[in-house]
Amino acid sequence: MRLVRRTKRTRIPSRQQLLVLRVFLAQVENSRYGYDIMKSTELGPGTLYGVLKRLFDEGYLHKTTELINGRCRISYRLTEAGVHYAERSLIEDEYEQAVKNPTILEMES
């Protein structure tokens, strides 16, 4: 009997996810609120929180609950694994874009 080991499927980051990761990487140390991320990425709230949930479920995001003027507000920040994942995803995305469009490489060279 042959055992087949199931590996975890690696999800290719979507365009929306790359936008969010790029916003987080711009200020790695700072936490960002949902509305601020939405303004920066110009994504809809439904799409944005879908991306945030996916990143949080994979352990790339850290949430902090703050109490501002008696009202709760949640801020988000990349974890250490999230920073590595974001950097790797953005580099891979740039490489794929360069392969798809070779003129970018020629212009850079």
């Binding site: 609120y33 509305y35 709230p45 949430k63 507000r73």
Partner: peptide, 16 residues
């Protein structure tokens, strides 16, 4: 399992 995210979005709306 996703009700917490809806709650967070509801918290955020008061700051918009």
């Amino acid at each position: 399992e996703d009700s917490a995210w809806v709650e967070e979005m509801e918290f955020e709306v008061s700051f918009i």
